[in-house]
Design a protein around this nucleic acid. Structure first.
Lengths: 195, 195, 195, 195
DNA sequence: TATGAATGAGTCTTCATTCAT
DNA sequence: TATGAATGAAGACTCATTCAT
């Protein structure tokens, strides 16, 4: 059974967008990669913009829903945050191309980019909520949850991408150990009293 | 005495590139913003690419040299890292436009983007060296310095940009407190023994 | 049924290139002359260079094949050469524009120009072979066939073009008589013994 | 003693124009080759066009005057024509670059190109006059002198250039033998009676 | 549903020429 | 005389989008 044209286009679009970025990628590229006539893309998607948006939406949802569904109510904030860190690292390993897209195309003032940041924001809220819960339950230090959630997201993202784009083997577990350490106890051996 | 055309172009280029990104920015935009004929840009820079590269080089150097010159040999690793965190936060506040450029244009496989990542890497080495020193002096936990340095860079960058692009007032000191906490003692109140 | 866009472009390109030369001719000119959008040209030809090359290839082939197909094996070398002279003169009369292109654009060190000279060379070989045959059969004097074939080609070409560009009526038969005389018996009344 | 800027420019212009042709050659090229500032060229020549025209004028004059001064009144038409053939062949060998310019830039409808053809015409008249004299004195067959003079000019030019551009050693004497044969007795062994 | 030829607005880049010094 | 920074018009080429089939 042949794959639907639609899904061929979808996959080709991810490949091409992650390789070249939104602006440099052409509809011809995508059509060629999907083995489909250019017109066919326009039959399924109104525009390049829409195709791209659709793609990113799907991706962020996949990340958010994946994490969200694993966050059980009876976990402690620490357990929850640990899970988030681990899941995000796995996701980056698995959807490397998509993650490149995310980091490339989220900064700027275009409508599309604002939209992207909102999507990412919707994921960050997950982290933020856990941080807030941790503070409320006095498990975590008192910090600004928004700063910390964006910081954590950035820490994991950049560290992961740094490995992936350096074409080194991606050892998710090792990265997880370091990221967990950073997140929970920081670098100092003597702990907080020093500060 | 009027500013040299060269520096007019330089400033205009930063403005336009940060607003629109490399691909969407046009040489006409930049020329108009600089109040200069388009040919004048090409008199000073061989191409759009070269202008852009020059600009980013200058910026990363400014960041790296600024930090490097303040790192004194008799500081402890903790003091050094604290200084780096603070300086980077200040830099992002001061050169917001340039920082947007950096985060937008560093991901991808084009020659230019590889070049950018190398430049960023040259800054990350500063952090990495301090982390290594801290581990050697047993001030810091044993971690992979490369993971941690890219993680720290990402944490600060994304957190800072998140505020700057959200058009909120940029309170560098508050951000510094949170980032320092994350860096040194992490979120957990009970410290490392829990882990 | 309307002519294919492709052939409209082809004809327009001949017109414009012969009028203005390769460098001065613009793709806008050609598009306008062909009543076609500029992009359409690029849909069919990868570049100005390619369009031009294609055009010249076709032209030289037309000349060479036209002559070649009329050269019958049982002709004497003299008859063959006579036929070549006549055919080339007719060709110049008929494809004046193309011939101007040929003479304009074949001299220089650019890739394209080397290519052109090769094409012309492929035509000269026809002449050269006949000259060689004539020498072998002792109908012709002993001469360097390469010198003579390029000389004959130049003689006919420049003489023809000289008339065509002088905007005089092109009397192919009269020109043929003179060129035949030059080719076979030369100017001297007393013939070779004088030399 | 340093060469005058003027003559530096002159020589540089010949080099560059013959290498790249009128359109592709730039004033920057010429200035660089002449080790002179671009403005300096404009101090001596009103425009690119004028510089070029001046150059070609000088060259054609050199050819024409060289030949003309050697044509003595008491020579027979045959001797005169022989001398012309020899001189032109020598000239092509000596001023190869200039001759390429001549053949490249003489065809077309631009003012400059009409001008060029006039200059070449002024040289052809020399040949034409000799042919006419030869016919009048019944040394030469009755032919159209204009056809024959342009034909001879083309024969020699193309044959010479064919060797020069093929990067073969230029044996002027051998070429002269072949061109003289063509000019005076033609290819046929049996002479004119056959025709 | 699917195609691919056609479009034309938009971009980077070049270069002859000018002019203040 | 000589310079070289500055100009801006012009040209090759790209590519998202449309539409007749």
């Amino acid at each position: 059974m042949r794959k639907s044209k639609m899904s061929l286009i979808f996959q080709a679009a991810i490949d091409v967008f992650s390789e070249k970025g939104f602006d440099k990628a052409t509809m011809d590229d995508i059509a060629a990669r999907a083995n489909v006539a250019k017109g066919t893309i326009y039959y399924h998607f109104k525009s390049k913009e829409e195709l791209f948006l659709f793609l990113v939406e799907e991706g962020v949802e996949l990340l958010r829903d994946g994490v969200e569904s694993k966050l059980l109510p009876d976990m402690t904030p620490t357990e929850k945050l640990e899970l988030i860190v681990r899941e995000q690292i796995n996701f980056f390993g698995q959807y490397r191309d998509f993650c490149v897209i995310l980091l490339r195309e989220s900064w700027g003032a275009e409508e599309r980019q604002l939209e992207f940041r909102k999507m990412i924001r919707s994921y960050m809220y997950l982290i933020e909520a856990v941080v807030q819960e941790g503070i409320a339950k006095e498990e975590f230090h008192f910090v600004n949850p928004e700063n910390v959630s964006s910081g954590l997201f950035g820490m994991i993202s950049i560290a992961a991408l740094h490995i992936l784009l350096g074409h080194k083997p991606y050892d998710g577990d090792a990265l997880f150990q370091d990221m967990r350490r950073m997140t929970f106890s920081g670098l100092l051996k003597q702990g907080e009293d020093k500060l």
